[in-house]
Design a protein around this nucleic acid. Structure first.
Lengths: 218, 218
DNA sequence: ATTAATAATTAGACAAGACTAAAAAATTAT
DNA sequence: ATAATTTTTTAGTCTTGTCTAATTATTAAT
């Protein structure tokens, strides 16, 4: 149906797209996919011919309904496979990305339906990112970055913004897990670090860490 | 490391290779992969440059040690994924092939080790074909075709030679399963059909069916 | 409002893997 | 042994997706 390369471009546009922005720029896509702007320019022309993106020269791209559905389906597959790897095959959350990048291109409707069921119809992946449903719809959960919480506010840690190995391994080392209860005890004006109480432990985390943890307020 | 196309050629040569023959012919490979002899000729040159096959013009190809290991690893992955699809995801044995053809190219050592363990280290796939171990070694089980059994002989049905959808669905319809106890009651000289007793039922099967069922003698 | 800097596009080339058509080698038949 | 047939290889083309280098458009700076 569509090539892996086409799917990767659609996915990149999907991830870069922002309702508050115009279109996604050629250079942003090139940067995301670690490729050259000229290659992106070519591919966008192709996707546009196939009515998967709307394209205006020197403006930017947006996914069409059809393009968005395909992108969402690739993201759905990626995240379901991540759940599989962690829940069933003992992968850690920092190990799943590369394999899921491959598995997301496997084409089989039955496979994904059965996998979804086998995993118990998960709603989020191991990093807390929502799994699109079959129609490409995302369940939007109210969430903010921990860095936005004020002293005294509390919530549950439900996701990470950065999912780099380094960050995820840091969280493991500090024993910070999704689902943990977090309360902001104090904020340090000097270095913008935050004193938190997490799962009944007290710790101090840097500005950068707080800016990459998603919290569901209570 | 190696492209999907290269892996598919190596696998084809692996399956076509026969210790009692010289090399695998260009046209046999073309036929197996549903491609043209000229394409095969090109690819063989490439695989030969990479020391994955031994190649003599107008003679045939044989896998080198390295080529054989790669081919066996692809076959291993194919068959382990088939087990996964049937045992865990409710696929029937006639539905697994196309998906496994895709999954066999996923590259991740950890994935296959964990999957193997998750499945309980299976030794055969859903069609009774042996799963190569990590070093590419096959466990060889003594087996013959049902058509070779003489009147009065008996054994266990352990595999199919043809794994086309048509044949597998026929077996399902007749409720013939791997593991069933089979005894040859009589053989019809006229149409070469066979009267068998299978799992305590009596039935008559055609020459063609008997020529595609593997039996482990007892 | 020009100029400078940045971003996007085009033109042309290349590699992988496939194809067709034609030539060459090997095999089979007479 | 030579002719006929089959198989294999070569030569040249095509598509996909990439690249570099050069050009064109847009945005930012003075």
């Amino acid at each position: 149906m569509f090539s892996q390369s086409e799917e990767n471009y659609l996915k990149a546009i999907y991830h870069l797209g922002n309702p508050s922005q115009k279109g996604v720029s050629t250079s942003d896509i090139a940067n995301k996919l670690d490729t050259k702007a000229s290659s992106v320019s070519d591919m966008i022309k192709k996707l546009s011919d196939k009515k998967l993106v709307e394209y205006k020269k020197y403006y930017g791209v947006n996914l069409t309904k059809k393009g968005k559905l395909i992108a969402a389906s690739v993201v759905r597959k990626h995240r379901l496979w991540e759940v599989f790897l962690v829940d069933k095959l003992n992968f850690t959350w920092d190990e799943v990305h590369d394999v899921a990048e491959q598995l997301e291109h496997i084409k089989s409707k039955k496979l994904m339906e059965e996998l979804d069921s086998f995993l118990g119809f998960p709603k989020t992946d191991p990093h807390g990112d929502p799994i699109p449903d079959k129609d490409g719809n995302l369940q939007t959960i109210e969430k903010t970055l921990l860095s936005n919480l004020k002293k005294g506010e509390s919530g549950i840690c439900i996701g990470v913004k950065d999912s780099s190995s380094d960050f995820l391994q840091y969280l493991d080392k500090q024993n910070i897990k999704l689902g943990d209860q977090i309360k902001v005890m104090d904020k340090e004006a000097f270095d913008e670090s935050t004193h938190i109480q997490i799962a009944n432990r007290n710790m101090n985390i840097s500005k950068k860490i707080a800016a990459n943890l998603y919290i569901q307020l209570q």
